[in-house]
Design a protein around this nucleic acid. Structure first.
Length: 803
RNA sequence: GCUUGUGUGGCGGAACUGGUAGACGCGCUGGACUCAAAAUCCAGUGAUAGCGAUAUCGUGUGGGUUCGAUUCCCACCACAAGCACCA
């Protein structure tokens, strides 16, 4: 059998018969939407890791179709982004052309693997028909007050004179030239994502994401509940701090404020050591976010002379410091410092020789801080805290808060780590942001009917020296007129991040050819939610959060039917090289799926990737194991020769239990045990001396079909077993026939396994006991001994205690 | 440091709600076929002792609960990933 030929043959058959076409509004069938993350079509081609998740969900989709569902299993391309731009610059071709080529390669590779994608719904985020709607949605954000311009720091390489992404500036140095990255202020578009913190947290309850995925999201949102407190400055003025440990308020010995915050700028006129303070601010500004947070040990800082703050509970006057561990954009940009009960404050106090006051008893505050994770819930009590002394921490927390709230100087608040989304990129290869700057009118949105705002078709897309987007150089594109007053105006030259296009593509798949809307409400209501969404673990925090934010916003303005449009999120484990390391060109351990398909065929690769291990766990590539799967398929072919002219199933239990196992495993991501169940079935068939029936063969082929679709169809046709499997119904099983009527169970004596006994459903404790007394090896353990206890758990075990 | 996950033969991995640990596959050993090899087929394969029936040990380590623990509880170790001065 020529695998290449039969694979081609069936791929053609599916294409001609539109076997995998999903129809919108098919009222006869239940909709079922299975989605795998659309890939970024890189120049390297499809990775065996892609093959793993695509095969897994392809198998699921194929089974669901046979079970009578209207399955939506789409594929597309996430083709904007820096890598395409870099590749284009290096190879001197337009990113558009590079992307087109790469998509072509990817698509061909996918086709040779026989994935049942509905190619009618294919699109790329770089298609103007698609990004028109990405731009349109940005305008909705803007019109609803959710998009604004703000000056934000960007990673800047002073040598390359270019803006770097966080990834390209890992470790605080430029990836290209190794120069230390600095922070440069730039005016950028922002989306008000932080205002959705609570909704994004609550929304998780309406999803069925894996627990670890939910936790990732919860961590990223980073909610903390505490108190915002007003602090008076000696000689007038005040500022606010945020704390989650108000119970330690009597332990305040100083305050620390952020060098990058607004507060220090306001206080500047009263500062006595201006030079020193300014120098420290400057030093901090030089540090990238990375460098700043990596400084884990040394607590740098600088006193702010001339400013003293008053502890509101006892009127104590304490000094104020600058410290770069306090962040300008979290909380209020200022903290109260209680060195006895916060390790960070403790280290700062040690480094700067500051006073410490213990206010919660039970810790060793001379050597390290006694922190809230250690004292909470342990019944610890307060000391040195006036009327609160002696109260438990929990009680004091409440009473102190109440007192401060009553005085009108404190408020209970929630803080979130999640910030607004920086939505501008100084790049060519992204969706242009459809905004125009007019000297008279300010920022003006483009008229919706003028969308899409196309990327100019020019040869220059290298970044500029000034850090502006390459678009800034293209004058005929930049210069336009104000949509409001008609005066001369300029376009925004930054583009969107590539998270933008991927934040709503799953909606577009529901209605990909719609020219009037991004997707019709009817189509979205019909498909309802993405039932399964599979993607890499690296996207479970950010991409998923962006996508949920985007959807929640669309929901709030009435454009999508559900607040959460993704129901289950799962992620696959990585495929490592045979040396157990991540596959990479430099390590030379990359496996190209094309080579495997050529040598063994697509079905072998598919079976192997499903069988290689737990789907959600990382696993190393193993050629021998791959060959084993090839052997399995060859035996499947060979056993066809033994078909006899009998009918039905010799072993009803085998048939029923295998149907059950495979049907369940394909929707619980246990693909490896599904394959193993089929191997067991084949092993049993091979033991039949008079061959197998057509029914038996057809069953095996049908159950294997979702994983190895080509060869099973071919054999089904060759032996005239019935209609093509992909057009047939999935087999059902009879629960009562999935178990043998007798079962061999273990016999334990004093907790040790001593033998086996065969039992039937009808057996009672008494009959089992009689059976056991006849077993040689067990007799010697019970004879002449007193049976203290006799336990028989039907279908499980016999356990005897003797003395 | 924090969070999460993982730890089972030579290897990838099975084991339902606590019930015969090691399914299935790979590898290895022996045999058949062959001039020979590959492929294929048959048998065996956790460790130790024994010709053998069988016995002892065995799911990262140390405890505990239980008639019975890979599974539950406590403490610890190792590895991986994510977050990382978040007040």
């Amino acid at each position: 059998m020529n695998t290449m030929e039969i694979e081609k043959k069936w791929q053609k058959y599916w294409e001609e018969h539109e076997t995998f076409k999903a129809m919108n509004n098919d009222s006869k069938k239940k909709p079922y939407y299975i989605l795998v993350e659309f890939p970024y079509p890189s120049g390297a081609g499809l990775h065996v890791g892609h093959v793993r998740s695509y095969t897994a969900h392809d198998a699921m989709a194929r089974m669901k179709r046979m079970q009578g569902y209207n399955v939506l299993f789409p594929m597309g391309w996430d083709a904007f982004g820096a890598p395409a731009e870099q590749y284009a610059i290096k190879n001197h071709i337009h990113p558009k052309d590079a992307v087109r080529e790469n998509i072509h390669t990817f698509k061909n590779q996918m086709k040779t693997l026989g994935f049942s994608f509905d190619w009618d719904r294919e699109f790329s985020t770089t298609d103007p028909e698609y990004y028109k709607w990405t731009q349109w949605q940005f305008l909705q954000f803007y019109k609803h007050g959710m998009a604004y311009k703000a000056t934000m720091p960007v990673n800047w390489c002073p040598n390359c004179k270019t803006v770097l992404s966080n990834e390209d500036s890992a470790g605080g140095v430029c990836e290209r030239c190794g120069t230390e990255v600095i922070q440069k202020e730039k005016s950028q578009w922002m989306l008000k994502m932080a205002s959705y913190s609570e909704d994004l947290l609550k929304g998780l309850d309406d999803t069925h994401f894996a627990e670890k995925v939910k936790l990732g999201q919860i961590n990223w949102i980073g909610k903390s509940t505490g108190v915002e407190l007003d602090v008076e400055i000696v000689g007038g003025g005040k500022f606010s701090i945020f704390t989650t440990a108000i119970e330690t308020i009597y332990g305040i010995t100083f305050f620390v404020i952020a060098p990058d915050g607004k507060l220090i700028k306001e206080l500047m006129p009263r500062v006595e050591n201006k030079e020193e303070v300014e120098k420290y601010i400057e030093e901090t500004a030089k540090k990238s976010a990375m460098a700043r947070t990596e400084l884990n040990k040394d607590k740098t800082g600088c006193i702010v002379k001339g400013i003293k703050a008053i502890n509101p509970v006892n009127g104590k006057e304490v000094p104020v410091f600058l410290g770069d561990f306090v962040l300008g954009d979290y909380g209020t940009g200022a903290v109260m410092a209680v060195p006895s009960h916060d390790q960070r404050d403790f280290e700062y106090a040690k480094a700067h020789n500051l006073e410490m006051i213990e206010v919660i008893s039970g810790g060793d505050t001379a050597n390290h801080a006694f922190e809230k994770q250690d004292y909470l819930g342990k019944g610890c009590t307060l000391v040195n805290s006036e009327e609160f002394t002696g109260m438990t921490v929990e009680e004091a927390k409440e009473k102190i808060t109440q007192k401060l709230v009553d005085k009108g100087i404190a408020r209970k608040v929630n803080n979130y780590k999640m910030r607004d989304w920086i939505f501008s990129r100084q790049r060519f290869w992204g969706e242009p942001i459809p905004m125009i700057y007019c000297e008279h009118c300010g920022w003006v949105p483009m008229d919706e009917k003028d969308l899409p705002l196309l990327l100019p078709d020019v040869a220059e897309y290298e970044p500029t020296d000034t850090g502006e987007s390459p678009l800034a150089k293209i004058e005929e594109w930049v210069n336009t007129t104000c949509p409001k007053c008609g005066a001369k105006a300029k376009r925004e030259t930054d583009t969107m991040p590539n998270w933008a296009g991927s934040s709503w593509y799953f909606l577009r798949f529901m209605d990909p050819h719609n020219t009037k809307e991004f997707a019709s409400m009817d189509a979205m209501k019909y498909w309802s939610k993405v039932n399964w969404y599979n993607g890499g673990m690296e996207h479970t925090a950010r991409h998923l959060l962006y996508a949920r934010f985007w959807v929640q916003f669309l929901y709030n303005i009435g454009l999508v039917p559900h607040k959460e449009m993704i129901d289950i999120r799962v992620s696959h484990g990585m495929i490592l090289g045979s040396n157990n390391e991540k596959m990479s060109k430099s390590k030379g351990n990359v496996i190209n799926p094309d080579d495997i398909v050529k040598e063994y065929g697509a079905d072998t690769l598919r079976v192997y990737e499903m069988f290689m291990g737990d789907y959600q766990q990382d696993v190393a590539w193993n050629v021998d194991s791959l060959k084993g799967c090839n052997r399995f398929l060859n035996r499947i072919i060979k056993i066809g020769e033994s078909i006899n002219d009998q009918e039905g199933y010799k072993d009803q239990v085998l048939a029923n239990k295998t149907i059950k196992k495979v049907s369940e495993d394909l929707v619980t991501l246990k693909f490896n045990t599904a394959v193993s169940a089929l191997m067991i079935m084949l092993n049993e068939y091979e033991k039949y001396e008079d061959g197998i029936t057509k029914d038996e063969y057809r069953l095996l082929l049908t159950l294997l079909n979702p994983i190895a679709p080509h060869i099973t169809e071919e054999l089904n046709e060759k032996y005239k077993l019935g209609n093509p499997i992909c057009e047939s119904a999935w087999p059902t099983y009879d629960e009562s026939l999935t178990k043998e009527s007798t079962k061999t169970i273990g016999v334990q004596i004093n907790g040790k396994h001593r033998g086996e006994v065969e039992v039937t459903e009808e057996d009672t404790e008494e009959t089992v006991k009689q059976k056991i007394e006849k077993i040689e090896n067990i007799k010697k353990y019970i004879n002449e001994k007193e049976i203290v206890k006799f336990i028989y758990i039907p279908n499980k075990i016999v356990s005897i205690i003797v003395k």
